[in-house]
Structure formats: structure tokens, C-alpha cells
Simulated assay, not measured.
Amino acid sequence: MTAPAVLSTDRLELGEGIRWTDGRAVLTDILTGRLLALPDGPGAALDPITRLSCPLGAVAPVEGRPGHWIAAAGTGICHIDPAGRVVWIARPEDGAPVPMRMNDGVADPHGRFWAGSMACEATEDAGSLYRLDRDGRVTRVLRDVSIPNGPAFAADGTSLYLADSARGVIRRYPVDPESGDLGAPEAVAALETGSPDGMTVDIEGCLWTAVWGAGQVRRYRPDGTLDQTVDLPARQPAGLCLGGPDGRTLLVTSAHIGLPDPGPLDGAVFAVRVDVPGAPAAPYRPTAPAAPADRAGTP
């Protein structure tokens, strides 16, 4: 494992949602609504892809449609085309009792997209987890989560990892591969310092998580045993993925939001070489046109 390298000159307010796709890394600066790509060299700024007029949590590529994205944004889930035009699939958090926004999101190996919501003021138990199926239907699959982060999936798509960052807990849910229904969760890790944030799973089935507030990334074995810790020169690591040509580059975003005295690397994007690779981001694979705006089912 190498020492962390800084990958651009930018410092992000709330860098999240980093994904390796189509030979490059894309990421979000949530509260500014920006989708960005890593530059070719460390001495350059991040490349802008598009900017929304609302918070942008994370994206997944759309299979077979270069430049098209499914996004966790604003109060729901939308489609973004190469020109930056937005078509809303559903906005299930419109009209919630407290102001809400979408947070992290990812596509699973079966082609569905999953995204969490949270209260803008992190109100306890206000958040939910939503699933966008391949036919365009959006369903709330979990309620009463304060700050959902991840989600991340095992390679075969039969296990979902979800962090409730406010409670410092990472849970694993069995996933029915056909329906996407979730089974009963089990706790994988409970952090005593810092909060679990963005996550990814490597090819050995181990879970990597950024640890907000602790300046670390940690790798957990499937049984919850802490296997590795990577220290970073930024206090608020937020998102991560495994990428690069061989899948062995751990890419980590960070944030300077809320820090009264940000250091020179708070908000930077880092790279660390690791031994075990991961896979590129899974795409969303639609089977039909997107659902009408604000179509959302709740169990």
C-alpha cells in the first residue's frame, strides 16, 4: 500500500459519490450540484461534466448510452443527458415534513439503482432508501434512517451494505436477485470513532468505508473484522471507489464543509494503491422508458 497522493488542485465543499466508469473517475460536489471528472494529471483542476440547480449526491452510468446518467439529486431520482438536461423519474421527498435531499446512490449488479435520502438538517430517522427498478418504478424500501450512506453491493448482488452514518453502524441486508426485496439486516460494524460514509466492496468481498471525522478509510472482512486502516491528511473522507486500469487504486473524496479551520488538504481527492482490486461502477440497465415524474411506490 502506498502513501495517499493528491489528485487535483480542487478542494471540494462536500465531495462524494466517486465512481470508476468508462476508464475514468467521476464524482460529485453535493451541495453545489456539480458532476466532475478527475483530470489527467495531479496539477490540474477537476473537469466539469454538468451542474444541476439542486444538490447532486451520486450518479450511475446508463448502459449502452454514453454520457447519460441516473442520479440521486434534489428530492428524488432523475435522468441526465449529455447536454445536462434533466428528466425527473420521481421526487418522493417533495412535501416531506422537513426539508430533504438525496444523498449517496449506486447501481447494483442486476441493473437497478439505489439511493438514500436525508433531512437537510440531519433530522433523526427522517431518511429513506429508494430503489429504481429497471422498468422505471421507484419504491421506498427502507424508512427511519437518519443519514443513509453507501449503499454498496457484493459482486453477485445478493448482499447490500448500508451505513447509518449518524448512528455509526454498517448493516448488511440480503437481496433477492429477482425482485430486489431486502431481508432482515445484520450489523457488520459499529464504529466508536468517526462515522461510516461512502463504501465499496472489493473482489475478496471485503468492505471499504470512508470514516468521516476520523481522517481514515477502513477495510472490513465479511465477518466484520477490521482488516486495514488508511490514514488520510483530511478530516472528513466522504466517498470512495476502487478504480484505475487494474482496479487497485483506492480513490477517496473528502469535504471541508463545517470545518472552522480547514487544512490545506480538507476537500481534496486522494489515491492510494492497494493489493486487492475492485470492479468498475455497475450501470443502470433500463428495460423501458423512464417512469412518469413523481411516480413512487411505498411498501
Rank of each mutant, 00 (worst) to 15 (best):
V6F: 03
S8E: 05
L12H: 01
E13C: 13
E13V: 07
L14H: 08
G17M: 11
G17R: 02
G23F: 02
A25W: 00
V26K: 00
V26P: 00
T32E: 08
G33L: 04
L35N: 04
L38M: 08
P39K: 01
D40I: 13
P42M: 07
G43Y: 01
D47V: 13
S53Y: 10
S53M: 09
S53F: 13
P55T: 11
A60Q: 06
P66E: 06
D81E: 13
R85E: 12
A90Q: 14
P92R: 02
E93R: 09
D94W: 13
D94V: 15
V98G: 10
P99F: 10
R101D: 03
N103P: 02
D108E: 14
H110L: 11
G111I: 04
G111F: 10
W114T: 05
W114S: 15
G116W: 11
G116C: 10
A119N: 00
C120I: 09
A122F: 15
A122R: 03
A122M: 04
D133Q: 06
R134K: 15
D135Q: 13
G136Q: 01
L142I: 10
P151M: 08
A152G: 01
A154D: 07
A155R: 04
A155M: 04
D156P: 02
T158K: 08
S159V: 15
L162K: 11
A166T: 10
A166V: 12
G168A: 12
V169Q: 07
R171G: 10
R172F: 14
R172M: 01
Y173M: 13
V175E: 10
S179K: 02
G180A: 04
D181F: 09
E186S: 12
A187F: 12
V188M: 14
P196H: 13
V201D: 02
G205I: 09
G205K: 06
L207N: 05
V211W: 12
G215I: 00
R218G: 07
P222T: 08
T225E: 14
L226K: 00
D227W: 00
D227H: 05
D227Q: 07
T229S: 14
A234Q: 11
P237Q: 09
G239D: 02
L240R: 09
D246H: 13
T249L: 06
T253K: 00
H256S: 05
I257H: 09
L265R: 10
G267N: 04
G267T: 09
R273I: 09
D275Y: 06
P280S: 14
Y284H: 12
Y284V: 04
P286H: 06
T287K: 12
T287S: 11
A293K: 07
G297W: 08
